[in-house]
């Protein structure tokens, strides 16, 4: 059973796995920032009284949310090179590299999920705040950025972080296009050395430690936020 469990193979793979982990964390962080930014824009569009803004945003969010992430990754890996060629006008243009392709795919995918959270957050800000802001003479942009979004984000931080932990887990799916994130690194070593048991269990352990610790802190944060609010 575990009698021939080989720790040596994990130790010697650590530098390679570390590089993979940096890829995963970098991808998670940038996709999170991009996703929240784009998600905020989508949420504002969806809540807009102008149908020309709210309909396309709603259609995009509902479409992305109804298809699997892997299919979205395939879509972007197919579309990005075409887009690059069209934009640059050069039919032989090189792509933008695997990291940025993955980043675009994850940002576009996560934006749809962040959008729904942010929309709920914005709607949870009492209407009176909006009226008060307008009554004070603020315009739409000022009311949104100075009054509504700060309050909305304060309520949303725990759930945005929880979503980002899931995003971190989901980045492992770049495996399907052969990228070397943490899981990709583990799987490449596993196949090279024929040590699937060691590497996959180790990967599971590391993911567990990171995600468990992160969700523990999110829970503590949430408990602190809930104090003094009803």
């Amino acid at each position: 059973m575990f009698s021939d469990f080989d720790f040596e193979v994990i130790v010697s793979a650590l530098p390679f796995l570390w590089e993979g982990m940096m890829f995963s964390l970098g991808l998670t962080l940038l996709a999170m920032l991009g996703g929240i930014f784009l998600g905020t824009l989508l949420a504002l569009m969806r809540l807009s009284p102008f149908k020309i803004l709210s309909y396309p945003a709603g259609a995009y969010v509902n479409l992305i949310r109804s298809i699997p992430l892997i299919l979205v990754i395939f879509w972007f890996y197919f579309l990005i090179p075409i887009a690059v060629k069209n934009i640059s006008g050069n039919p032989y243009a090189a792509g933008i590299g695997p990291f940025y392709s993955a980043l675009i795919a994850f940002t576009m995918f996560e934006a749809a999920y962040y959008c729904e959270i942010i929309r709920a957050g914005i709607q949870s800000v009492p209407r009176g705040q909006v009226h008060a802001a307008y009554a004070l003479g603020l315009n739409y942009r000022q009311a949104t950025t100075l009054v509504i979004l700060p309050q909305a984000f304060r309520n949303m931080i725990p759930i945005l972080l929880t979503t980002s932990i899931i995003l971190f887990q989901d980045t492992s799916l770049v495996y399907v296009v052969g990228l070397t994130d943490f899981m990709g690194a583990a799987s490449k070593i596993a196949r090279r050395d024929g040590r699937l048991v060691e590497l996959y269990l180790f990967a599971a352990l590391i993911y567990f430690i990171i995600c468990f610790t992160a969700s523990y802190f999110v829970k503590r944060l949430q408990a602190r936020y809930n104090v003094g609010r009803n």
Binding site: Q169, D170, S172, L173, Y175, M183, Y200, A203, A204, Y207, F208, C211, F212, S215
Partner: peptide, 8 residues
């Protein structure tokens, strides 16, 4: 919950 589906 804390291990990615792909790893599982």
């Amino acid at each position: 919950r804390n291990i990615p589906l792909l790893v599982q």
